[in-house]
């Protein structure tokens, strides 16, 4: 299916934003680790963590957007999202990564690596999805 319009960057990616984990612990967005997502998903009754591998990165409809194709979970479901260049994804074992890390750092003061094909991102699915 065609990707939807680019998702605007939400405020919680700004450095210093306070994030509440599933066990109630508060952390700054820049301090989050892979384990925080894994442990929070383990506690969650609704959400299940999945790995999404970046398969393709193409230009989006507008010059500041990209279309990222992911292969999600064991079933390798193909999912396309169109996001702004600076939109950060959390890569397993690596942390925040975006297609334009310089721009992410400039806009949100969030340190980022370059998101590349083959990177495995944290994603979520609903438990008991029918």
């Amino acid at each position: 299916s065609p990707p939807s319009s680019p998702v605007a960057l939400p405020p919680f990616f700004m450095r210093g934003s306070i994030i509440q984990l599933a066990d109630g612990e508060l952390k700054r967005v820049e301090d989050l680790k892979t384990e925080d997502f894994i442990q929070s998903a383990e506690i969650s009754s609704e959400l299940k963590i999945d790995s999404s591998t970046v398969e393709r990165i193409d230009n989006g409809q507008s010059p500041n957007a990209v279309v990222i194709q992911f292969s999600v979970g064991e079933l390798k479901a193909q999912v396309c999202v169109e996001v702004l260049l600076e939109y950060p994804f959390f890569v397993f074992g690596q942390g925040w990564s975006s297609c334009c890390p310089d721009r992410t750092t400039q806009l949100f003061e969030l340190s980022c690596a370059k998101l590349c094909v083959g990177d495995v991102c944290v994603s979520l699915t609903l438990r008991g999805l029918r």
């Binding site: 306070i18 509440q20 984990l21 508060l26 959390f90 999805l129 029918r130």
Partner: peptide
């Protein structure tokens, strides 16, 4: 009187794009 400013707290799952695959079958 100055009201105390509350700091927004965001849930952890809001940071993760929801990539639940659509079940086509």
């Amino acid at each position: 009187n100055v009201e105390p400013r509350s700091v927004p707290v965001f849930p952890w799952h809001s940071l993760v794009p929801f990539l639940a695959p659509t079940q086509s079958d």
